[in-house]
Design a protein around this nucleic acid. Structure first.
Length: 612
RNA sequence: CGGGGAGUGGCUCAGCCUGGUAGAGCACCUGGUUCGGGACCAGGGGGUCGGAGGUUCAAAUCCUCUCUCCCCGACCA
């Protein structure tokens, strides 16, 4: 007896299968009111997750099972290019001080003290720790390249966790770090990650794109994100349907159509015009009967300058000028001026730097500092203003604007750069391409980027090159959000009744639904079918609950299992129904053919995933 | 951090304005009838209304403070 009972729960048992009646799969008829996005609602309703706090979730049986499958794929692929480590989640302060990030990261890092009063933090990412390993252990170019990875929990005290598992404060990440002797080596490590990431996301059945991304203020020369389009996503992607160009909006550029310049009036020099009550771009454009593209918009910021080791230094005034119909891209701006933080100017600051009121700010008469973030006012113009003529701008005087303003002639700047966000419909930036850019929302599932020498330099990692000379290894850093793969997959495949996952990451491949457990022959057929499929190696869930058929169908549709086999009315004739969740299609299959048919289906889908 | 919303059995929500010490549906337990798209009947268990303080004879309800969660924004190596 004991042996039999053990066998029932022992996964090495060839006839092992999961029985729904014994499992904890707490499905909800209604989604908790907190849930807004599809993946959040359905993962809750399907009993994959339960919320514990803001951005903190329990993963239940089904959720954990799916995450384990994702992790297995990630591990299998990563093992082809890298070595798996496991670093601690709780970390001492010192490495972070060395890299400068103990102060640079700020409140996004969870910090704590031990009983002796020593500072610790919860792992936010592991560049520092991997680099300290490298510094302590790597001595020779002969040991390079190295790629080390781990699959581990990360902690980030996000200012605003949201959307279920999309933005959380504790999550699982696959993070890897490469150490190479030179830039050419880094290129190789980067490319190997690119290839492996494509395999991983493909095997997970995701419909993804890779896009150029911002490398962030932390430096780095090349950065690429892997994104899945979904309205639940937080990132905006500009893409060209013609040539395939795709970039995060934080990075994307475009070609602008030429603007028809206005004719100069009077002597052609800047002329003061009374424009009472015209503080908004639309008012100004209407007043002068011009397009907003001929108006110069001003956005005034205070920027936090970085000091030594990235420590906050001082707030400096920054005036940004761009076309009236364009938007400042603050990520680009931060990168261009090298600041740590931005905020908009207050009224007193406006009068200090401009001697003028909001709504009527303009570039004429300002004295741009020659140095970015120097003591004076840093003036940044968007490069699209260069070469323009006869524009309209604020006069730094209430109710007055200037016209006939020509950049370069009538005002100068500290720096001209691309600091605007592209808009949908603008021309693709690729010189040979005529396409028009589309902008769509997406969720980031992976990110690879070339770190350069940032950490190896600041933390003093060195190896000897073939000439016996000390050199600093060059690094790359690469991440995959494990839960985001699950979330993206749910966002990618759901309808009013629930969702479906790709076979590769679904908690079960098939659910065998016995429509009436009170009927002994149905029950026996269900048992036989399920155990045969299980014996053939499929992940089978037998729905042996004493529930009505309708309840079982609803539940099965909800919980993400790609295939369902109904054992019901036709079982007496040796037939069952095979339902494909993604398409809601059903077909009758003879019991004798069932195993072969199921195997065929699963292989078909694997092939699809492999060629996606 | 700024703006908005919400905390009442496991879930969805009503009650609050016009104080009189708690209700519905679903879920759960028992019995019965059902059994292919979230069944029905009967019986039953479970909440002191996020927390603290105050006003009052009396507070879920009014006042003050506070905590938590959600949404928008800011932020997001």
């Amino acid at each position: 007896m004991l042996f039999i009972r053990l066998c029932e729960w022992e996964s090495s048992c060839p006839l092992f299968m999961h029985r729904w009646s014994k499992l904890f799969i707490p499905t909800l008829r209604e989604a908790p009111a907190d849930a807004e996005v599809a993946s959040h609602k359905f993962l809750l309703r399907a009993g994959y997750i339960r919320q514990l706090g803001a951005g903190i979730y329990n993963y239940l049986f089904l959720g954990q099972r799916s995450l384990n499958k994702i992790i297995a794929i990630v591990r299998e692929e990563m093992d082809t290019i890298a070595q798996e480590f496991y670093l601690p989640g709780i970390l001492p302060k010192e490495p972070w001080v060395e890299s400068g990030r103990w102060s640079a990261i700020g409140e996004n890092m969870f910090r704590l003290k031990d009983r002796k009063g020593a500072d610790l933090c919860l792992g936010f990412t592991h560049e520092e720790i991997m680099t300290s390993m490298a510094r302590n252990e790597l001595r020779s170019y002969k040991q390079l390249p190295q790629i080390w990875y781990q699959i581990q929990t990360k902690f980030r005290d996000e200012p605003r966790p949201k959307s279920g598992l999309l933005r959380v404060r504790q999550f699982i990440m696959k993070d890897s770090y490469s150490f190479d002797l030179d830039a050419a080596g880094l290129d190789k490590s980067f490319d190997r990650h690119d290839a492996v990431y494509r395999r991983i996301f493909t095997r997970c059945g995701l419909n993804f794109v890779s896009v150029e991304a911002d490398s962030g203020a932390m430096g780095g020369s090349q950065s690429q994100e892997f994104m899945v389009y979904t309205d639940a996503g937080e990132d905006l992607i500009a893409s060209c349907p013609q040539c395939g160009y795709a970039a995060n909006l934080e990075k994307a550029t475009s070609r602008l159509d030429p603007v028809k310049e206005m004719e100069p009036s009077g002597d052609g020099m800047p002329e003061l015009v009374s424009t009472p009550g015209c503080a908004a771009i639309a008012d100004v454009a209407a007043f002068f009967s011009i397009s907003p593209a001929s108006d110069i918009k001003c956005v005034a910021y205070m920027a936090l300058k970085r000091g030594e080791h990235g420590k906050p230094h001082a707030w400096r005034g920054v005036a940004v000028f761009l076309r009236g119909d364009h938007q400042v891209n603050e990520t680009k701006l931060l990168g261009v001026i090298g600041a740590a933080e931005l905020r908009t100017m207050q009224a007193e600051e406006l009068s200090h730097y401009f001697n003028g009121p909001a709504g009527y700010l303009g570039p004429v008469g300002l004295r741009p500092d020659t140095q970015t973030l120097g003591d004076g006012l840093t003036v940044i113009v968007d490069q699209s203003l260069e070469g323009r003529r006869n524009m309209v701008c604020g006069a730094n005087q209430l109710d007055y604007h200037l016209r006939n303003v020509t950049p370069g002639r009538d005002f100068g700047w500290t720096l001209s750069a691309d600091i605007r966000s592209v808009n949908e419909g603008e021309k693709c930036p690729k010189p040979a391409c005529n396409g028009q850019l589309l902008v769509g929302k997406a969720v980031e599932v992976g990110h690879i980027f070339k770190l350069g020498y940032k950490y190896s330099e600041s933390m003093g990692a060195r190896v000897l090159d073939p000439n016996g000379k000390e050199v600093t290894p060059i690094m790359g850093s690469y991440g995959i959000g494990i839960e985001r793969i699950l979330t993206a997959a749910v966002e990618q495949g759901n309808d009013a009744n629930g969702f479906w996952l790709p076979v590769s990451i679904a908690p079960f491949t098939v659910v065998v639904t016995v429509t009436n457990m009170a009927d002994p022959s149905l029950r026996n057929t269900g048992e036989t079918v399920a155990s045969e499929l299980a014996a053939a190696g499929l992940d089978v869930l037998l729905d042996d609950r004493q529930e009505r058929a309708g309840v079982k169908f609803k539940d099965a549709d909800l919980i993400g299992i790609p295939y369902r086999i109904n054992v019901g009315k036709k079982a007496g004739d040796g037939q069952v129904e095979l339902v494909t969740r993604a398409t809601s299609t059903s077909e009758d299959v003879a019991l004798a053919d069932l195993l072969a048919t199921m195997k065929e289906r699963v292989e078909e889908q694997s092939l699809l995933e492999a060629s996606a």
